[in-house]
Design a protein around this nucleic acid. Structure first.
Lengths: 241, 241
DNA sequence: AATTTATTGTCTTTTTTTTAGACAATAAAA
DNA sequence: TTTTATTGTCTAAAAAAAAGACAATAAATT
């Protein structure tokens, strides 16, 4: 891999991605654990090539760092404190990883490059958790889904970013009709309701929720879903694009 | 003035400010006209010093470029197309201004610096138009308020930025209770209503509007305002912080 | 085959919110 | 004193949201 400092990136500008997925009634966030001694978690992040838009960069980062292609992405906030640097993280990491890498395990140029003050553009992504196969890169020891209420402590301001991403997700959820990105193609009304309940952290009434959703006129009613349960089979729905 | 390229700015990252004001029933935007041959308008813009946060940079830019201090500011969007450069503008400007400046009126380093691809963080500002005294710098020929429906053609994507800033202003107007930044300290209910009508471009009913505003519990009723008009004098209100 | 069970789809009723209508109060002119 | 234009606030009507009710039904149980 070419040295980071030698690549044709925009300097001091990064992108951090908060990837939301939904499974088994839980809203989850995909977070890699760095391939280092010491437990370091960090949002999938990357830099912007000179020749690509920030949106393209975010898509590429998602693909490179997590194996996700063509997912829903939206900016939610820029993080630009003057003290926002990787220095504390790198110091701790270097201390802990001296044996593994030897004293100088990262080139000086790269170290200088990466420990500068960074402004970061926060993106949130919504994916169908059943369709994606998160993969690790050489940077990561593992990559896992964490319940949004139980996120590990991450470097920098990444925990705060998750909270802000969640706020923006809530604001846009209805209005921008983005929730279908979190569900499989076909879903029952109950599944959709559960997703709403998890995202907004409050219960909805079944009857009124169904009315509200059908009145939106974005759902196509499909065949029934026979689950083998001893009760009436629910309809499956599909989001009309 | 030191050459831009020699200053300690973050590279390829800029801030553009959409400054909203309200006067005589019109929502207006403060836009400087550049001190060059050829009519060039551009939003007040600037760069971020290594030692300052992006919010501080936006405040400083507002003060330097327009003489505004401590105004309400909020991020609204990042503009990051890969083709987003000043090259077209500079080419046109250089062509038109050869006589004025001579062939080489801007240092090569600066030219290279400023014509690189830039990512820009859009901020919108809300000011009490009666309290601010916009001033020009050596960069600007003039600085004027334009009705939001009658903005001059600006460089780059600045016209598009005004539209997006307006969208965000509408989204946050109620919810974040930011409208008072556009009004003088004391105002009548009718003045507040007119502001709402201009921002949302639709009429509100006087009786229901008054109820809604009073129910918010953020208005303090003050003395009456006697205008000399042949009718009942309205109360003045102040926003309770 | 009839009955039971758990859940779904949809209807009606109630409550709350929004919108519309009405009118007295009033500052200054006629 | 009357007239005029506008303000503040009340009530009525309409719409929307929340709550309640119940028939429909897939499969297990009797």
């Amino acid at each position: 891999m070419r040295a980071i400092s030698q690549q044709n990136f925009i300097q001091q500008l990064s992108i951090d991605c908060v990837i939301f997925g939904y499974k088994d009634g839980n809203l989850q966030v995909l977070i890699p654990k760095l391939n280092l001694i010491g437990d370091f978690w960090a949002l999938p992040s990357g830099f912007i090539f000179q020749h690509e838009s920030i949106d393209q960069a975010a898509q590429r980062i998602l693909e490179e760092r997590a194996g996700l292609k063509e997912v829903f992405l939206d900016q939610f906030r820029v993080f630009g404190d003057a003290q926002r640097t990787n220095r504390a993280f790198f110091k701790k990491m270097v201390d802990l990883n001296q044996e593994k890498f030897g004293e100088i395990f990262i080139e000086k140029d790269d170290y200088d490059w990466i420990t500068k003050r960074f402004v970061s553009i926060g993106y949130y992504a919504l994916v169908d958790i059943n369709k994606v196969n998160p993969r690790t890169t050489e940077l990561d020891e593992s990559i896992d889904w964490y319940d949004v209420h139980d996120i590990p402590e991450m470097i920098l301001d990444h925990n705060q970013q998750v909270q802000q991403a969640l706020e923006m997700l809530r604001i846009n959820f209805d209005h921008k009709l983005i929730w279908f990105n979190l569900l499989p193609e076909k879903f029952t009304m109950k599944e959709l309701q559960k997703l709403y309940e998890v995202v907004f952290d409050k219960p909805f009434r079944r009857n009124n929720f169904q009315k509200k959703m059908l009145d939106l006129d974005v759902l196509e009613r499909l065949e029934k879903k026979f689950t083998g349960a001893a009760n009436k089979a629910p309809f499956l729905y599909r989001f009309k694009k």
